[in-house]
Computed example of a mutant assay.
Amino acid sequence: MIAVDAGPLQTLRSRPVVGVASDRRQHQRVRVAVLGRYMLSDRREYPCQTVDMSPGGVRLTCAVLGEIGERVVLYLEFIGRIEGVVARHTAGGFAVKLAATSRKRDKLASQLTWLANREILGLPEGRSHERVVPEKPGVTLKLENGREVMARLIDISLSGAAISCNATPPMGSIVVVGSTPSRLVRVFEGGFGVQFLLPLSPDRFHAGMVL
């Protein structure tokens, strides 16, 4: 889920920024894939996933682009609410320049350091959203090779699901759970866990939902 350049237990605040003069960034960026949602000035919310992030900015993968300079409010897993403005459009999304106090930037630096070290130190995958057991657990799973198999949802949250299935795809592979693109992020006895590439909308998330 997360690819980083930093060594274990280093902090983003103490580590010198290397090679960023050309892009005029003031903060060390961490490649981190965190699911979330964002709200543009029309007050509509859309799903997103981070590509990389620093205490001063974040690059998103998303479907709906904001205008350059438009205010954006973000709600990200493990991080919470942050806001800023659209700085530039990118392939598959846009970058946000964050508006934050020095105290908030310090907090973001600590959160990003934790996320980076969490992956490096091999801490278990977690889901911060509430999990429920679906009333109708049967679901079709489409594998990367196009093969479709029947599976059972053990539990599900806004950001992922635990699945029981006769076939276990390789770690990191992309699968489609029902109609929801996902990535396999963990394997456990009796099944495996997937993370949705974009989080579910709250109105799709209930005990009788169909993915």
Rank of each mutant, 00 (worst) to 15 (best):
M1N: 08
L9R: 05
L12T: 07
R13S: 04
S14G: 08
S14R: 10
R15E: 10
R15G: 09
G19Q: 11
V20G: 12
S22F: 01
R24H: 04
Q26M: 09
Q28W: 03
Q28V: 11
Q28R: 06
Q28A: 08
Q28I: 08
R31Y: 02
R31E: 07
V32M: 01
A33C: 06
L35P: 08
M39Y: 03
R43D: 02
R43I: 00
R44W: 00
R44V: 00
E45H: 00
Y46Q: 03
C48E: 05
Q49K: 01
T50N: 04
T50I: 02
M53P: 15
M53W: 11
M53H: 15
S54D: 14
T61F: 10
C62G: 12
A63Q: 15
V64F: 05
G66F: 10
G69E: 09
R71F: 03
L74I: 02
Y75V: 01
Y75C: 00
Y75L: 02
Y75H: 03
F78Y: 11
G80K: 01
R81V: 01
I82M: 06
E83A: 02
V86P: 07
V86W: 04
V86M: 04
H89C: 03
H89Q: 09
A91P: 04
G93H: 02
F94A: 02
V96S: 00
K97I: 02
K97F: 03
A99G: 06
A100T: 11
R103N: 06
D106A: 11
L108I: 08
A109M: 06
A109Y: 08
Q111F: 00
L112F: 11
T113W: 05
T113N: 12
W114V: 08
N117W: 09
N117R: 14
N117L: 10
G126D: 14
S128M: 13
S128L: 11
R131D: 15
P134W: 13
K136S: 15
P137H: 09
G138Q: 14
V139H: 08
T140V: 09
T140I: 07
K142S: 10
L143F: 08
N145D: 14
G146E: 05
R147L: 02
E148C: 12
E148D: 12
E148N: 10
R152C: 03
R152H: 09
R152W: 06
R152M: 07
R152F: 07
L153N: 12
I154G: 11
D155W: 05
S157V: 06
S157P: 11
S157K: 01
S159T: 15
G160Q: 10
G160T: 09
A162D: 11
I163E: 10
I163Y: 09
C165L: 13
N166K: 07
A167S: 14
A167F: 12
V177H: 02
P181Q: 14
S182C: 14
S182T: 14
R183G: 05
V185C: 06
R186T: 08
V187K: 10
E189R: 15
E189A: 15
G191S: 13
G191Q: 13
V194E: 10
V194I: 13
Q195K: 05
F196I: 01
F196R: 01
L197W: 03
L197D: 08
L200K: 02
L200I: 04
R204K: 04
